[in-house]
Design a protein around this nucleic acid. Structure first.
Length: 592
RNA sequence: GCGGUUGUAGCUCAGCUGGUUAGAGUAUCGGCCUGUCACGCCGAGGGUCGCGGGUUCGAGUCCCGUCAACCGCGCCA
């Protein structure tokens, strides 16, 4: 017989009755009745009830085992009496009478229990990740992740993409997020960097003639974390194709993503028609470039109704250059209590507040209420009500100023209003392409023009477009939003060297700088570069949505905490002086 | 870097307007128990109330500072 097991803990059923078997696994739960002792034995596959009574030659040994000990047992399979069948486990028809036991690994008192659904603080869970991973939820999430990755690979291969591995130690790139640097031993004072994405490599693969590339690629960025963002490293489905336009990329990638969501999304409805929303429109309607379309609320511009109106604050603001008034409709939100709460929300988010109007029924007539309505008068209020298509019991909130100053908060207010009024359809994966991103943006503090998205994207309108106002230039750049998360980002690349150099010039990078930083790619683009484009989809976020989790660490095996520390491995850690010596490095203490 | 929330037994939590010896569940240890599947019953041990300072006759509770975790902002081509 095998040293550890003849069956797994989910294998046995009535067909095995009478057989002598060997099982290995963890002690999930012990129920000690003195004269009769039950153990739920658990492995990756399932659970089997094993038991011993004083007739067992190893009864005294079995009595000593505790939760989460790893054991091997021998025994005989017996059919359970019909009244004793446990429907909850696949082996519930039978149980195993223990004749021999071997303790493979005993366990100390547990910092967190594998059994049950008790919640534990994340610090504990991360420090004892190996225990947390034994629990049902993380076992399920990690299996899902593995299955999703396998399905993606299968789908990409079926579309005749090939998977290639690109370097993990490479050169720092001046754009984008902070790099992780790796000191070079052979070149004292010089550093490699971990790639933020295989961006340049995949473009070089296109120049090299490979036509269709994909990779489940690790990406490294030294960013501060969020609930939906892993610090240090995460995985992308990285894709690039030659001889394509934007629509070709959409047509190729939608079936892959949609297919994965249909395969693993359970009962949830998966959108099959993906709307294309220009960036500018998205900002107006939703206040964000990653709108959650399960929330039906759409903001509108209502400036005209406040022009020279009796509401001094707004009409004054409107006289400023570029100022607008935007409204968030709130159907069924028509109570002072609700409106005040939302106003408080906006104040907490750093705005002076949100004005509001709500409509009520007074003796059969629709009447607008709230201080704002009084100030602008019945006619304007009614015009607003008609534009927003609201009625009795509804409300609307108003934000004034330069859109950039309130757009983000308005977007969050829209989310909060939608949630509070129960308008969000949670049983759906809502997809949309966000297209026509601006190539450049002006830094609000330095007033410097810089790339807003991806510096390697092709500007719409070609090289002529770069002659005008840089802030007006749109790129062939796109994101995919799903339920309020940015799931994918991509672009048609700029494969023409003269356009690329001009594009970088507008952002303040001279030709010499470009040639120095992107030498490999610049060089390649001088030798017959094909038109190409692609995208990268966040694997962690896809799994997070499919697992119905709101925290990305629930779908990562060994995640970092909010301070980018690995509590289990104790990373980062101090280097030895020998290591530093080897690398010609000295650690400088920060004075502050 | 900034803001919010949290911090009490190994673990999850309760602890009111400041007032006797800081409690419960679970885990651990001991005893009883032959049909449980969240087994049950009896008992025991287990506490720097995150840390430091202050107010007070008296602080887990109030004040100040500080540390840590999480959530958000900045950041994220």
């Amino acid at each position: 017989m095998h040293a550890f097991r003849s069956h797994t803990c989910s294998d046995l059923n009535s067909a095995n009755a009478g057989a002598s078997v060997r099982l290995s696994g963890w002690v999930h739960r012990v129920r000690d009745h003195g004269g009769l002792l039950f153990i739920d034995l658990r492995d990756h596959y399932g659970m089997t009830q094993i038991l011993a009574d004083p007739d067992s030659p190893v009864f005294s040994k079995v009595e000593k085992v505790k939760s989460e000990w790893c054991i091997r047992i021998d025994g005989v399979v017996k059919l359970r009496d019909a009244t004793l069948v446990n429907e909850k486990i696949s082996s519930g028809q039978v149980e195993v009478f223990i004749s021999d036991i071997e303790v493979l690994g005993a366990a100390d008192e547990l910092p967190l229990m594998v059994f049950g659904d008790q919640e534990y603080p994340e610090e504990t869970r991360l420090k004892y990740r190996f225990l947390d991973l034994r629990r049902e939820k993380l076992q399920k999430n990690m299996k899902l992740r593995s299955d999703v990755v396998a399905s993606i690979r299968k789908r990409m291969w079926a579309l005749e993409f090939r998977e290639f591995q690109t370097p993990i130690i490479t050169a720092s790139s001046p754009e984008g997020a902070r790099d992780f640097l790796v000191p070079s031993r052979l070149h004292p004072g010089k550093f490699y960097a971990l790639p933020q994405a295989p961006q340049q490599f995949k473009q070089l693969l296109m120049v090299s003639g490979f036509d269709k590339y994909f990779q489940i690629a690790p990406c490294f960025r030294d960013e501060d974390p969020r609930a939906d963002r892993s610090p240090t490293d995460f995985y992308q489905l990285d894709v690039e194709m030659s001889f394509v336009e934007q629509e070709d990329v959409f047509r190729t990638i939608q079936p892959v993503i949609q297919g994965v969501f249909e395969e693993f999304g359970g009962e949830k409805v998966v959108d099959t028609s993906w709307e294309k929303i220009p960036y500018k429109t998205s900002m107006i309607l939703y206040g964000t470039d990653k709108p959650d379309l399960r929330n039906p609320l759409r903001m509108q511009i209502v400036s005209e109704h406040f022009q020279d109106s009796g509401f001094e604050i707004f009409s004054k603001i409107l006289k400023q250059e570029g100022a607008e008034i935007r409204a968030i409709p709130a159907p069924s939100g028509g109570s002072r209590k609700f409106c005040d709460r939302m106003n408080a929300f906006a104040q907490k988010e750093g705005l002076p507040g949100m004005g509001y109007i709500f409509w009520r029924d007074v003796e059969g007539v629709v009447e607008a209420a709230g201080p704002l309505a009084k100030n602008i008068g019945a006619e304007r209020t009614e015009a607003i009500r008609i534009q927003l298509n609201l009625g009795v019991g509804d409300a609307a909130f108003f934000l004034a100023g330069k859109p950039t100053s309130f757009e983000a908060v308005a977007g969050r207010a829209r989310v909060t209003i939608g949630n509070e009024l129960n308008l969000v359809d949670n049983n759906r994966f809502a997809f949309a392409w966000i297209v026509d991103f601006p190539m450049y943006e002006k830094d609000t503090e330095t007033r410097k023009v810089d790339f807003s998205h991806n510096p390697f994207s092709m500007p719409q309108g070609g090289i002529q477009a770069l002659d005008g106002d840089p802030l007006e230039v749109l790129g062939y750049q796109y994101d995919l939003t799903c339920n309020g998360y940015e799931l994918l980002s991509g672009a048609i690349r700029n494969h023409k060297l003269e356009i690329m150099i001009k594009a970088f010039e507008l952002a303040g990078y001279g030709e010499d700088e470009v040639r120095k930083r992107f030498g490999g790619m610049v060089n390649a683009f001088s030798y017959g570069a094909p038109p190409h484009g692609g995208c990268a989809a966040g694997i962690d976020r896809i799994v997070m949505l499919l697992a119905d989790e709101s925290n990305i660490r629930e779908v990562i095996l060994f995640p970092m905490n909010q301070r980018a520390e690995d509590l289990m491995m104790s990373a980062p850690s101090d280097p030895t002086s020998d290591q530093l010596m080897d690398l010609s490095l000295r650690v400088v203490k920060k004075s502050s």
